[in-house]
Amino acid sequence: MDRRTLLGTGAAAIALGGGFLWTQRGQQGAGSNLLVGMANAQTAEAVEIPDMVLGSADAPVEVIEYASYTCPHCASFHANQFKQLKENYIDTGKVRFVYREVYFDRFGLWASMVARCGEGARFFEISDMIYEKQREWTASGDPATIADELQKIGKIAGLDQATLDACMQDGAFAQSLVGWFQENADRDGINSTPSFLIDGEKYANMSYADFASVLDGKING
């Protein structure tokens, strides 16, 4: 199955888009940029990035997904296999599920910052919407339009403008996310998305039937 290939060295510079993190349209529709100096971000204290987790801490199997919000195959996985996995394994206490973001570009980084906004209280709700609307918010390729579309998703989930602005102007947060992603990818040998670690063993994307077979083997083994 085709998967998107992870960016190699220089991912931080690519993800951060040459120094600005967030482009926001003004209230009157005229474009205005909210610029974050990368020098300031790099000298700021690093922010701790927590894993986002679903399921019981005592589940017999742990599944870690590495995925990108701009990856079509990741969107397909979340629209299909993931819903069945959640119903049959995560919600039933059989699997502890950990989601870790991968950044191919600044737009995926922005999406992650929106999803984690508000201390991640609505992370999985926002993530679901980001994947469901992936074609819509990425369609233009225009940074200002993409920023507007991501803001709309955040607001639908209940985030207000002030909260979104505070999250998206946080250069230290963005820099820490990129460093966290690179550390994870290097340690776990992640070179494409979606990729999975099931009890520490790496797997590529697969059908629900194949996923269930692997999980059942580990649960019953």
Rank of each mutant, 00 (worst) to 15 (best):
Y131A: 10
T145L: 13
K133N: 11
A185N: 12
I126F: 02
I198W: 05
K133G: 04
C167I: 03
T138C: 12
G154R: 01
W137M: 06
A144W: 12
A174E: 07
R122S: 12
K152L: 05
Q134P: 03
F124T: 02
E125V: 07
D188K: 06
I153P: 10
D142G: 08
L177T: 01
A144M: 12
I153M: 15
I198D: 13
E119N: 13
E183I: 11
T163A: 15
A121H: 09
N191V: 13
A185Y: 06
T145S: 14
A157V: 04
E125D: 05
T145G: 09
G154A: 14
I198M: 13
W137L: 13
V178S: 11
A166C: 08
A172L: 03
Q169H: 13
E183R: 03
L150P: 14
D142E: 15
M129S: 08
G154D: 09
F196P: 00
G179Q: 12
E149W: 10
G118W: 02
I146K: 03
C167P: 15
I156S: 08
A157I: 14
A174C: 05
R187Q: 15
S127L: 06
P194A: 09
I198Q: 03
D128N: 13
A121Y: 01
Q175T: 09
L177N: 01
I153H: 05
D160L: 04
I156P: 04
G120H: 02
W180Y: 14
G189V: 04
D142T: 09
G200P: 04
G158P: 14
A174N: 09
D188Q: 04
D186A: 15
G120M: 03
M129E: 10
E149N: 13
T145P: 08
S195A: 14
D199N: 15
D148Y: 05
F173L: 11
C167V: 11
A172Q: 10
A157N: 08
G120T: 04
N191Q: 10
Q151D: 11
G158K: 12
A121F: 00
C117I: 12
I153R: 03
S195T: 06
W137D: 08
Q151L: 03
D170T: 08
R135G: 15
L150W: 13
E201Q: 06
K155T: 09
E119D: 09
D186N: 15
G118D: 06
P194Y: 00
D186E: 15
G171V: 11
L159N: 09
E132Y: 01
P194E: 01
A147R: 07
I146E: 05
Q151H: 02
I146S: 00
E201S: 05
E201C: 00
F123T: 02
T138A: 07
